[in-house]
């Protein structure tokens, strides 16, 4: 049982980003362009009430689309998304998010508020960045290995 202040921090206090949202009838070509333009790795697919229906990620792009011709662009996201309404509540903790990402091998989790609507997305990088900032003595100014040259305060 880990008992320290970081694991009990709530999701609402971990810096995260606005999600890329889509309805289930949006074509994936459009979403791929949105992902690239916004430098994101996932789209959260929601219903008319803003509730999570599933996720469309880089993994779905690789595994569920057929690139023999350009017709993949017209496929509707609802037909190729990962149907999984897993989300994390904004009052859940860092430890909860870590466990969910680990157990489900997820890199992104939709964050939902009290009304059940999606209002954010938490990424693995958000968690790691929070850890590194929370424990600067352990993760910053690291002694680089002999093959790395120190060029910044980050140690790399």
């Amino acid at each position: 049982m880990v008992s320290n202040e970081l694991v009990d921090v709530t999701i609402a206090r971990i810096p995260h980003r606005r999600p890329v949202l889509a309805g289930r009838d949006q074509p994936v070509g459009e979403l791929v362009d949105r992902l690239a333009a916004s430098k994101r790795g996932s789209v959260i697919v929601i219903d008319d009430d803003g509730r999570v229906l599933g996720m469309f990620t880089e993994r779905d792009v690789k595994h569920r689309l057929d690139f023999r011709d350009e017709s993949w662009r017209e496929v509707l996201v609802g037909d190729v998304m990962t149907v999984d309404a897993t989300a994390i509540h904004e009052s859940a903790t860092f430890a909860d998010a870590l466990a969910l990402m680990r157990d489900r091998r997820r890199r992104h989790l939709p964050i939902v508020g009290a009304n059940g609507r999606v209002d954010g997305v938490l990424s693995i990088r958000d968690l790691l960045r929070f850890v590194v900032r929370h424990y600067p003595d352990h993760f910053l100014n690291l002694p680089p290995g002999p093959k790395h040259e120190t060029s910044s305060r980050w140690g790399g």
């Binding site: 790691l128 590194v132 993760f139 790399g156």
Partner: peptide
């Protein structure tokens, strides 16, 4: 590049700071 003998905390730093996955 990273070596197998590098510290895991160093790898975590690079993933967090640079966004490498």
């Amino acid at each position: 590049q990273f070596a197998p003998s590098d510290c895991i905390s160093y790898a975590i730093n690079r993933m967090a700071v640079r966004g490498f996955r």
